[in-house]
Design a binder for these strands. Structure first.
Lengths: 104, 104
DNA sequence: ACGACTCATAAGTTTGTGCTTATGTATCCG
DNA sequence: CGGATACATAAGCACAAACTTATGAGTCGT
């Protein structure tokens, strides 16, 4: 998955909203569609794109498809952004706090 | 600058390449164009987009326009990605190393 | 077996993005 | 002043992206 593809995939607000909803819970395609003013095929297509990018994973169960975030798919994005870490200083303190939290 | 806009801006490989070149040095529009198989207006348009997104800043000097990275423009991206930091564990060690480096 | 349900795929339309050529504006230099 | 240089803007075109409706494929319950 190229950087260009990752950015293109995430440039769509509906797809980012889908990721956000999946961040807190595993959901089916139909459940995901709730709250979106979008047709079922449109959602299906977005899901296919997210899956193609490795950003979500699928668990089939009968006629239901359950989706969840595949965080490792964000790796290219992390990696790209890291190239600009020389400019992070103002955020380092936050990171330090975060690490302290996680140590406990 | 919305998340959607930031992602759209960065989804273009030419624009990301421009940022990469500017990360190490301040350059003029013409200098930036070197190595790209692209017309002058095309580059000018990409620059306008990057500037509109707050990702680069301009320093005018006579007829020359010098550009450099405006790292704070990446903030929305950092912020968005941080929402998925719950999935970072495998990267925490790298962060710790990074912080150690920066403390010295 | 049959209708209802969940999701995927196909085809067509519309809108957006990035490019081009042409031209405009401002600055520098001889 | 007048030509050359640096960059921006305008207009038009080609391709890509996201949506729609229609339909297909598989699963469930009665």
């Amino acid at each position: 998955m190229s950087d260009t593809d990752i950015f293109k995939v995430l440039a769509d607000p509906t797809r980012r909203a889908v990721l956000e909803r999946l961040a807190s819970a595993e959901l089916t395609a139909t459940e995901l569609r709730e709250g979106f003013a979008i047709s079922q095929p449109a959602m299906s297509q977005h899901i296919a794109v997210l899956r193609g990018a490795g950003l979500i994973s699928e668990r089939r169960e009968g006629r239901f498809a359950h989706y969840r975030v595949a965080p490792e798919g964000m790796a290219p994005l992390h990696k790209w952004l890291a190239k600009y870490r020389a400019f992070w200083p103002s955020r380092i303190d936050n990171l330090k706090d975060l690490l302290k939290e996680m140590d406990q």
